[in-house]
Amino acid sequence: MLKKSGLKLWAVLLWLIVWQLASMAVGKEILLVSPIRTITRLAELASALSFWKAILYTLSRIALGFTLATALGVLLAILSSRFSSIRDICAPAMLTIKTIPVASFIIVALIWFSSKKLSILISFLMVLPIIYTNTLNGILAADPQLIEMARVFRIPVFRQILYVYGPQVLPYFRTGCTLALGLSWKSGVAAEVIGMPVGSIGERLQQAKVYLDTPDLFAWTLTIILVSLLFERGILFLLHCLERRLTHIGSSECSTQLTREAV
């Protein structure tokens, strides 16, 4: 994971040492807890079932919001690329969602919905414009000569989407996902902190704040970072597999045939 992020182990260790020295210099755990104490507290929390339930609660809701936004974003991008009127209708809505502060959304959503569904809605709203914009840009940037070729050879729409548009749009889509994944976690947890749905990570963070329990606050923050990183890596791995599948149609089939012939 360090290698993929472009992080050097020695640089990470350096910052951990700086953190440790800073907390020793401050000398008060309530102000700045040390990395060792954070990890110790995290280990304590991880031994309780409620810790894992809180992770599952938040992860499932943010993942649902992300998935729904991705599906709708891609669908709207396809329709917008085909029909300019849909693009015109979507443009102000997407711009509005992008520019309104997430805190405003959270407060309005709390009035309209139960706090249990808040993180689904907020992560959905944060992800939708990013996926929509990136996917639409990818479709619009697709090579028009290849599209003409597909049209002349009467390649069915489904195969066109998979094999003509797919490899060209996927890099844009992947960039959108990378941006949206981090944002969905930040906004989703922020929504939980304000809405405090029972059993969520946000609720635990809020409790840690209320009781000035800094080790808990740091331990939960570290948990969010780790879970969001794993979530991001998982999604990007799936996208990588899909990209390989789309850009190498028939290659494996062909290799198998060639091997069989050689035998």
């Binding site: 003509v164 028939g250 290659s251 062909c254």
Partner: peptide, 16 residues
């Protein structure tokens, strides 16, 4: 040529 660059010749022909 208007070929799908990442695909091999067999896949490009099979596409149509």
């Amino acid at each position: 040529d208007r070929l799908i660059e990442t695909m091999n010749p067999v896949s490009n022909i099979r596409l149509v």
